[in-house]
Structures are given as C-alpha cells and as structure tokens.
Design a protein around this nucleic acid. Structure first.
Lengths: 359, 359
DNA sequence: CTGAAAGCGCTTACAG
DNA sequence: CTGAAAGCGCTTACAG
C-alpha cells in the first residue's frame, strides 16, 4: 500500500469519493485509511508537517487535497482547548472606522483558519466587562482585538489578563505592554496638520477637540501643539472648542469659533465629521472655505470627499492597523518585540489655502 | 444528598469554589457531582428543562448559577454537529448599511447563545461561492444571513441548498421560498417618494438609478413609477440618469439632469449618497435646493443629515431588518409561515418644497 | 519517524 | 423521570 504511486493513490481516492458521494463529510479517519497511516500522522501533517517523513507527508497531502478534507474546527477547538475564532470588541460610533477595522483584521486573519466574531459593547452599561468575559469564555476565543474607546478601558484589560486571554489594544498611545498594543500614532498626524497650516502662512489657528476621554483627541491635539511650537506658535485656549466627534458638535464649534474676535484664519477639527460640521457653519454664515478660512479634518473617511470643497485631512491607515493588529495577535507567542506602529499622512485637498493678504 | 435544602446546596458549592479557585473552568461533570445527578441530567436541564422533575431541575439550576457554569460551545458544537455561530455574508460597499445590519442581527441573536461571524465576499472573484462554502463547512455554521447584492446571487443560493445550510436572504424583492427571505419592500418606499413630490405640485420629475443589477434600484424605481401613475404622471426616459450608488455618480447624474430642457423641478436619487452628489452638482451650478429644485434620497443614513439642506429621504429600517432576519433564521424550523417584511417610511426634511410659481 | 490509547466536554441512542 | 455507555472528530501524552 505504501508503495502506491500518485496515480494509484488518486484512483483509490476517486473510488472512495464515488462510493461516499452525498454522504457525510470526510474526517481525519477517512484520510488515514486512504493514505494508509494512523490518524495521528494525518494530524501531524496538518499541524507540524516538518515532523513527518516527506514521502509519507506527500501521500497524506495528496489524499487531503483530492477528497478536499477540511479538519473540523469544532473538534480541533475542543482538543486544542480554544476555538478558531478571534473577537473584535468595539464601541466606536463611526461606521466607516469600524468597518475598515473589521476588514483590516479579516485581511490579517486570511489564510490562518481563524474567523472574526464581532462584539460591540457599551461602556455605559454596568456589566459590560462581565458580558465581554462571558462572550470570550463561552466561545473560548483564541484572542480579542480592542478598538477605541473600548481599548482604553483598564477594567477591560484587567479582566482579559485575569482570564488569560490573548489580546491587542488598538489605541493612539501605548497603554499596556508592547505585546498588547498597536499604536496608531495620531500625535504624528497632528504635527503634520500644524506644519501644513504654518507653511500656508496661518498663525491664528483654532482647534476643535473630540469627545472627552478619547485619547485620540488628546494625541491629535498634543501633536498639533508640538507642530505649532516648531514654528514658534502656540494654541490660544480661547481658540479651542470642545467637540464630540459628531457632525452636530462640529457645527456648534464652528459657530463658536467664528464669533471670536479676531476670527481664526484656519480651523483644525479632530475628525472629518466635525470638520464637515464646521464647514456647514461657515456656509450658514456666508463665509467661504478656503478663501475666508481654511479647514482641516482627521481620518480621511468618505465624508472628506462628500463635502465641498473637499477636505484636507490626515489619512489614518485603518485597514493597515487592523491587519497589523490581527497579525500581532496571532504571532503573540513568537515575538517579544515591541508592538508595531502605523504612520498617518496628510492629504491635501481644496479646503485649505494660503493665508489671504487681507488677513 | 438529594434532600439538601437550598442553603446547604449553596454551602456545598461554595466549598467547591474555594477549593477550585483559579483552577480550570467548571464543566458539566462538576455540576453533576455537586447536584448529585448524572451529567445527562444536567444536559437535559440545559437543553430541555421540561423533561426534568422540578425539584431536580431546581437543584441543578442552583448549582449552575452558583458556580457560574457555562457549557463549552466547542464541545456542544461537536456533539450537536453544528457550531453556535451564524455567518453574515455581504458585499455592500456602504459602511453604514453593513454596520447597521450587523447590529440588527446581533440584536436578534441576543440571548440565543449564538455569535456573529462576518464574512465579506467579492462577486467578481471567480471562486467566491466555493470560498463561502469552505467558510461555512469549516466552522459548521448554524446558518447564514445574506445581504444585497450577495443575497441576489443564485449561485450562492444553490450552493447553500446543496450543502443543506440554513439561510435567510435579505433583498428588496422575494427571490426564494418565503422561509429563506426577508423582504425589505423598497418598492413601497418609491411609492412614498412619488406621492410626496406630487403632493408638492411637481410634475417634471427625474430619477437617478442605482448600480446596474441591484434589485433595490429596480424596486425603488418601480414603486416610484407606480406612485407617479396614481397621479397620472409617468417617468420620461429622458429624465432617467444612470447612477452607481456612489457620491461621484450622483454628481455626474446631477450635471446631466440639469442640462436638460426643460429642467426637472425635482430629482429622486435611489440612495442618499447619490442625492448628496446631485446637491453638490446643483451647488456648483449655482442652483438653490429646494427653491430651484427639490431633491429626495433613499436610506436615511448619516449623510442625509450632513448635507445642507438636510435630505428628505426614505427611512429603511435596517436595524429591524437585521433583527428580523436573525430571528427568522433561528426559528426556521418552527414556522412555515411566509418570511416577514419590513416597511419603510418617508422622512421630510429641507431638501424638498412646493413647486415655485415661476416653474 | 510513527502509532495505540486516552481524553477534550458535551449529546445521542438506548435502556429502564 | 433518570442514567451508563458510546460517540462527535480531533489532539495530547506516552511509547517505541
């Protein structure tokens, strides 16, 4: 039996296939029988191919491919004591961000055999940590990826450590051991905005913050101030408006900022949504963007292209971040290297221009 | 042992808890031992509580709650021959739609013990059906929910039938046996738009279609024409512009439509994204919305509120649709009733107004 | 380099 | 109404 050549082996598998047509799915036992090895050897070919003699391995692989054997993830999970699922725990209200992140994670998981289970949470709810814990334990997740602001919650991180669940936190600043972090470096994005506006000659620049307690907003502001400082400028507290990361809050902030005297010549909003709201406020007041005032956003989501003029903004590589986070999670045991970082870049569009002479 | 009262039982469980603190998770065997029954009886309490004597059941439930026993879904899945996972297969490019649908499905799954695994697909890829098949079989999914346009693909439906996988297709028109359908009734939304515009006195009305091959666009148009017919109007083919469901295609369609002579007094775009694009085109041409021209969208997503004037549109209850689809899927075996339908409604905002006298 | 036995934590099929 | 045995499809631990 062991001396069958490939064609004889395939013929054997073909016979078996016609015999079992329409019957239940093939198992590791079927493969073992056809390849004339023990099921343990088939298991080795699947999990640690290098430990199997090449001729044996080739024989087993030929059968696996021929009868399209797929190991049962349920059974594998039971034996391995964890499932082949990765969880994404999130509470970000922005659809585009969340979906991009999902897609990035799925990219990173591709080919690994792992699937993505999504799990929104609500930090305002009393039992949201306990609820997440039950979710993870019930499905014996391989690990979880957290995005802001769920990723910034220390109660959540504490729980994950307690139940010894692998995890990666996506955030704009390092909050944990590097092996648990994927830093999106929003600060650097803020620096880029400052440089851009300064290079256009602006000096009276306003800032619209994001939602209170969101690290991303703090980091974007911090970077912005660092960038301004390099041009010997600083952010006047009067020119800082509190926003909520929403379109509506952008409108309000816009109205507040243009009522100032002197009026700012440029406004940096901590995300695109608010920048679009600021533009709305300008329009209502009959001000022209960018001639009367330059506006910059952050994220580079769809909305940046849907407004007119289109928004100059910072592109945050959400897809890449998701992919890196997934790879970081699955490779967690292999590396004690610091977690990867992602680098944003500036996208110049029509909402910013040189400071007009009359300003 | 069987005569222990509740407090004695709890004390017993407490002892066990302190003894096993930090050790591995509790299993059905632990519950059986503490409740002094066989594990089969514990299994019955979990799966078919009615078949167990009340006193026994209460005893078992007390233990389960006390030691916070959660059955292992991996093991349960293996024995049941299917996992406790539901898949969502989608290819809709609109982030808001997809995320709302996810959230709706999660709502419908809540409390069922099932989790949601997301799986985007690309109908342009040669092997997208085979790929989905492997996904389902590898994880032994309990069932899948398909959204447009993946839900409109008959090759996909055929494959699902072949592998005997429970599924629900969300679409704007019935494409399958009622037990496999969740109809979103977009046609009715189209009727509402026609009625609204006619009631405002408009007669020269244009339509921007969605992406070719999307049933939703066809249904919205069909309903629109039905509604117009009720007012003895019809859609002039010259006033139909082909769109792609994207913002950019809305701009193009807008330019095309206002170059017509006579110019339409109202435009209905098959989704909000395109309606926003049409408004953009109006702005560029110096036309005022709604005074020069009324504009209506469809979906009622965030973008409808981000434009100015805010968009009159049809609210499609995506969350409800997702929830109903999930419930329909899980209850599939219980009912042979026709699949549920969802009803859209009109949201009047500032982008539509009475036909001006000079038109 | 390979295999026979035991086990992962549940449920099904059978029995009483 | 309840239980002992066998099994779901894999892997671990041990042996050779």
């Amino acid at each position: 039996m062991d001396n069958l050549n490939k064609n004889e082996l395939l013929a054997l598998a073909n016979d078996w296939l016609t015999e079992n047509e329409g019957k239940k799915k093939s198992t590791i036992n079927d493969v073992a029988k056809l390849a004339n090895v023990s099921k343990k050897t088939v298991s080795r070919v699947i999990n640690q191919p290098n430990t199997v003699k090449v001729t044996t391995r080739t024989r087993v692989e030929t059968i696996i491919n021929k009868i399209k054997f797929q190991p049962d993830m349920q059974a594998r999970g039971l034996a391995f004591r964890h499932s082949f699922l990765v969880g994404m725990i999130y509470d970000n209200p922005n659809a585009q961000y969340t979906l991009n992140m999902q897609q990035g994670i799925l990219d990173g998981l591709k080919g690994s055999g792992y699937e993505l289970v999504v799990h929104p949470c609500d930090r305002n709810q009393q039992d949201f940590v306990e609820e997440a814990k039950q979710f993870i334990e019930r499905q014996k997740l391989r690990g979880v990826i957290l995005t802001p602001s769920a990723s910034e919650d220390e109660r959540m991180a504490k729980m994950l450590k307690e139940i010894d669940c692998d995890y990666v936190r996506v955030a704009s600043v390092s909050l944990d051991d590097p092996k648990h972090m994927l830093v999106s470096n929003d600060m650097q994005g803020g620096v880029l905005v400052a440089k851009h506006l300064c290079s256009l000659g602006h000096q009276r620049i306003a800032f619209v913050t994001g939602k209170k307690g969101f690290r991303s907003s703090e980091e974007r502001q911090k970077g912005f101030e660092v960038g301004l400082a390099e041009h010997n400028l600083s952010l006047n507290p009067r020119y800082i408006a509190q926003g909520q990361y929403t379109f509506e809050s952008g409108i309000a902030a816009g109205h507040q900022l243009i009522s100032l005297n002197p009026i700012p010549t440029a406004i940096f909003a901590a995300n695109d949504e608010m920048a679009a709201g600021v533009m709305q406020a300008m329009r209502v007041k009959g001000m022209s963007v960018p001639n009367d005032i330059s506006i910059v956003g952050f994220d580079d989501f769809q909305i940046a292209l849907n407004v007119w003029p289109r928004l100059t903004t910072v592109h945050s590589p959400t897809l890449d971040i998701g992919r890196l986070a997934a790879q970081h999670l699955l490779g967690m045991n292999n590396s004690h290297a610091p977690g990867p970082e992602s680098t944003p870049w500036l996208v110049e569009r029509e909402s910013t221009t040189h400071l007009a002479a009359n300003n």
